[in-house]
Structures are given as structure tokens and as C-alpha cells.
């Protein structure tokens, strides 16, 4: 099922939480939403799930608007919210049965589905405990289990790995990747490595607006600049600095070491020929010429810092 978010805006009091946001997610795609606190990630997710009503704009799931078909479309959505609210007084099995009943899973299938989810989410030893007795990591697993129990077509996960230990995080990432092959997944996280590891596409939000949208590699390349580290032999580092500064397309030069400099140029520019010509002219030997890839973290910081 495809999810299309069209020009949604949402205001709380005087604060605009989401400002004219549009994007779409196709079946088999895992979309990551990144953004600093208060960027509007949770609000967007709540609007897609039909819990909040958008101030303007709409969300379409398989071409059906959520505001008019919320009841029907909620059957296709599995949602794990940010704080993972659960009924603390219920035990794991009862909670999963309750959710399975709400999703109208046939009665004879419920025990199997509950046991499947307990196995998939690693809750075998905790299944008879009440939610109150569980650690944060296990609560998160129960949250995931309830979101997945009805085999939803669209899975929305708000910070799904919060509170999990590194082994559990890897397990959950694998699970998301596996499920993501056949479903539509939207997930938000503060952990950039997680987004890079699990998502096909990333949206970066800042102050309720989309500031970047694309695959991790697209984001890196659309960032506008590429960095090259160059190690040279046979000359003085200050002469090298001056010479590189004079190349027309070089935007920024920095001395890294006494034989190494860093330059920044536009992504589109083919600077390598100029570097070779320069070195040839001054009889410098190139010992290293390496492009430095920017991490998602650098891009995130660059796009979201005020």
C-alpha cells in the first residue's frame, strides 16, 4: 500500500508543528524521518495514523483520504508510538489478544498469531508477566508485537529501538528490513546510523518543514560540496596551500598536516585534472588523493542547525 502525504500542516496554539509537508512512500520502501526534537516527526506520524486531524492537507492511503476513511484504513496500519503507551495492568498475552480482537483477527487464528508475535519479538520468557513488570526493552518489544500482530500493510514506528540493548537493536533492524521488503514502513529515529542501516529513503525535517528528501547517497551528493584530502611530496605546504587556493573551482583549502591538505569543491566540478596539472607544473608527487564522504550526521547537522 502506498502512503501519500499531501501538503499537510498542523498548528498547536501559535506554534506551527508541521508546515506544508508532502512526501510519498511506496510498498516495499522503508522511509526514515529524521529531525531534531520538535521538528514535527511525531505529529506527522500521528496524522498518518488518523489519531490527529491535519489543519490542512491530507494523507492518502491507496488513494483513500485518511480523514474520510480512518476506520477502514486503520486496519492496515500498525503503529508503535514514541512513548509506547500500553496497559500496564494487563499481561503480555492478554494485551496481544485484546489488540488481535480489535483488529478482528478470526478467533481461531488469535492464539497462533499471539504466539508467533511472542516468538518473533523474543518475549517467550516474559509472556505471563504484566506489562508493569517488564523492563523498558521488553515493553518496546511488546509495543512492536502489538503493532505487527494483524500483519499490517503499513507500519509506522516512532523511535522503535528506544531502550533496547545493542543486540536487540540489531535484531529489530533485521526484522524491520525483512518486513520492509513487502510492506510500507515509515520510521523515525534520532539514531542516524539506524536510519542509514534500515531505510531506503530519508526525510530530514526541521521546524515542521522538509529540508531534505532522498536516499542517503543522494543526500550526500545533493549537499553541494565534496571534500578531497591530498597528500603531496616535493614541496612546501604553504606553497601548496597558495597554489590550491588559486584554482578557480576550489572553494575552501585547509592544511591538515605538513604534507596534507584538504580542499572543498562543488560536487559537479571535475577538479582532478586541475590537481594533476598543478602538481605537474610544480613537480609535486601525489601520494594520496581521497574523496571524503560526508556522513548523514554531518548533513543532518548542517540542515538542522539554526
Amino acid at each position: 500500500m502506498d502512503v501519500v502525504v499531501e501538503n499537510i500542516s498542523k498548528t498547536f496554539g501559535t506554534q506551527k508543528a508541521v508546515d506544508n509537508v508532502s512526501f510519498s512512500v511506496r510498498k516495499g520502501e522503508v522511509l526514515g524521518i529524521l529531525g531534531p526534537n520538535g521538528a514535527g516527526k511525531t505529529t506527522i506520524m500521528r496524522i498518518i495514523t488518523g489519531f490527529l486531524f491535519a489543519g490542512s492537507g491530507n494523507v492518502f492511503i491507496n488513494d483513500l483520504p485518511i480523514n474520510k476513511n480512518a476506520y477502514k484504513l486503520k486496519h492496515y496500519i500498525g503503529y508503535l508510538s514514541e512513548n509506547n503507551p500500553l496497559y500496564e495492568e494487563m499481561n503480555v498475552i492478554d494485551l496481544l489478544k485484546f489488540i488481535a480482537n480489535i483488529h478482528n483477527i478470526p478467533r481461531y487464528k488469535i492464539p497462533t498469531r499471539v504466539l508467533d508475535m511472542i516468538r518473533i519479538c523474543g518475549l517467550e520468557n516474559e509472556k505471563h508477566k504484566t506489562i508493569r513488570e517488564l523492563s523498558k526493552g521488553y515493553k518496546q518489544r511488546v509495543g512492536l508485537a502489538q503493532a505487527l500482530i494483524h500483519e499490517p500493510e503499513i507500519i509506522i514506528l516512532d523511535e522503535p529501538t528506544t531502550g533496547l540493548d545493542p543486540n536487540q537493536i540489531v535484531d529489530i533492524r533485521e526484522l524491520i528490513k525483512e518486513i520492509g521488503k513487502e510492506k510500507t514502513i515509515i520510521l523515525s529515529s534520532h539514531i542516524l546510523a539506524e536510519i542509514e542501516a534500515t531505510c531506503n529513503r530519508v526525510i530530514i525535517l526541521n521546524k515542521g518543514k522538509i529540508v531534505a528528501n532522498g536516499t542517503s547517497s543522494e543526500l550526500r551528493s545533493t549537499n553541494g560540496m565534496k571534500t578531497l584530502h591530498i597528500r603531496l611530496e616535493g614541496g612546501n605546504i604553504n606553497d601548496m596551500y597558495n597554489a590550491f587556493s588559486k584554482i578557480e573551482n576550489v572553494k575552501f583549502v585547509d592544511i591538515l598536516d605538513n604534507d596534507r591538505i584538504s580542499i572543498q569543491v562543488d560536487t559537479e566540478t571535475d577538479i582532478e585534472k586541475d590537481i594533476f596539472d598543478l602538481c605537474n607544473r610544480f613537480k609535486w608527487y601525489i601520494k594520496e588523493l581521497s574523496p571524503i564522504e560526508k556522513g548523514l550526521e554531518d548533513i543532518f547537522r548542517q540542515l538542522t542547525q539554526n
Partner: peptide, 8 residues
Amino acid sequence: EFLLTKPI
């Protein structure tokens, strides 16, 4: 929120 994001 938990309840109202379900088909209720």
C-alpha cells in the same frame, strides 16, 4: 492514542 490509532 494507543486506542484511537486502532480501528476504534
